[in-house]
Design a protein around this nucleic acid. Structure first.
Lengths: 250, 250
DNA sequence: CGCCTAATTGAACCCGGTCAACCTTAGTGG
DNA sequence: CCACTAAGGTTGACCGGGTTCAATTAGGCG
């Protein structure tokens, strides 16, 4: 399947690669700042099993979340290249990371093209997601943005095996969602209700269920070229498992 | 100075590198589509001397410009990695490009870590700019967005030697600007007028003059960590040349 | 049980969009 | 030399999605 191929943000071969470059494992509590914007930085990090987010505080005090860092994603590449972190990073849930120290100026890296390629892949994928987030904020209505976000989360989590039928666990507050999409919590709330009433998604506590993938994808332009094949396969799978209303139906 | 250091989007050493990977030069007319989203793609491109932009058309017909490709910038890396272009690319002015064919799966690349690094740099830098554009669209007012865009253009063009004092040539229509910032031409127009009236910028025809760098940077949170040192140096330089009102006045 | 954080809902307001007209400039052809 | 055209720039009047302010209701946890 498509998501076994070189997949966005996922190192081609985790443990082995880690050992070869001397990675260290870190455990983090939830709701903690981990990196601060401007901070000196010589490691990139692989997120194994938790949720984090990258953000920036503006002069007016508002916070923009640039993206969520889901299990299997890498972050901090830019920070190493630019010598300091461009964005702050904080945890949402507790999580374990692998820290990979590297230095582009160091010749050592020249002899590890696989790491280099993995970093390039990750950077490119991040760029692709940022591009979509930009379109979210610039051109889509709140309704469309929420749809897009939920699909993006779902597709990623599905790819790393963290979904159950059409459902997944989403440890986000409405405030986090709002800060990611450029909306207020108030409006996130209202819009989420609308999505629920329109039977496009289900939300019970922290569990989100995608009820109508097609409709959501259509209205939010979710073709996500960069996940294209994955998405197609997933949709098929969903349709199949949707007939018999999966056991996750609560 | 800082912009001689590994600089965002600028290959460490242009011509030599090009030759070593067999680049071909292309000339393009203005106002032409060059790549279409979804198109198969095996080259990345270095833009030498023109302006282009990357964009996407949404289902409602509106166009979002993801970023402008200025002289010295690379584009199309994602397209190669994902096998097909995520965004369409079109020219604004006429321009000459170098096409660099590469294939991540090809071992040949393993023996060219410099190219890999250059691509990684470029991807990271692109990510950084996209992050800022996201913040533009999500959190900044029209006034702030315009400020930010003009500074970003100015700083880049200054870094590649295409400014004169505080002025630079900007071949953009208000429609292009609007599509990049998520605004309508009408509102771009009004906001541009406001910036002019507030004496922050000057605009005569296609020539933009930065009249108050400090104020613009402050109100648009333009610290651009990713260009930090460059910006600081530039600001100093500007201040110096601003005392005697540079010859570019008018 | 009280405390705090998150979710929810109501009402008034505003930034920026929409629609529509008009102006300015450059290019073209007679 | 001017008439015609087309694209881009400029301005006005009105509207609506989303914000702001504010109050109320649910959950988690000492």
């Amino acid at each position: 399947m498509a998501w076994n191929a070189p997949f966005p943000g996922r190192l081609p071969s985790g443990p082995a690669l880690e050992r070869s470059v001397g990675a260290k494992t870190i455990r983090l509590c939830k709701n903690k700042d981990f990196l601060l914007a401007g901070q000196f930085c010589r490691c990139a990090y692989i997120n194994h099993d938790g949720w984090l987010f990258r953000y920036k505080i503006l002069h007016n005090g508002s916070r923009q979340i640039v993206d969520f860092v889901l299990p299997g994603q890498i972050f901090g590449i830019q920070a190493v290249l630019f010598r300091r972190a461009l964005y702050s990073v904080a945890t949402i849930t507790e999580t374990s990371l692998s820290a990979v120290a590297f230095d582009l100026l160091d010749d050592g890296l020249d002899r590890n093209p696989r790491l280099l390629k993995a970093l390039l892949w990750s950077a490119a994928c991040e760029g692709a997601m940022l591009g979509e987030h930009l379109i979210d904020a610039a051109r889509r209505t709140a309704y469309e943005r929420l749809s897009h976000l939920l699909l993006e989360l779902f597709v990623w989590l599905r790819a790393v095996g963290l979904t159950e039928g059409g459902s997944f666990h989403m440890p986000l507050t409405q405030e986090l969602i709002g800060d990611a999409l450029g909306l207020t919590t108030v409006h996130v709330n209202r819009t989420l209700r609308a999505l629920r009433e329109d039977k496009l998604v289900g939300i019970e506590g922290k569990v989100v269920t995608i009820r109508d993938f097609e409709a959501l994808a259509l209205l939010s332009d979710f073709e996500n070229s960069y996940l294209g094949d994955a998405v197609r396969a997933i949709r098929d799978e969903l349709m199949a498992s949707d007939d018999g209303e999966p056991s996750a139906g609560s």
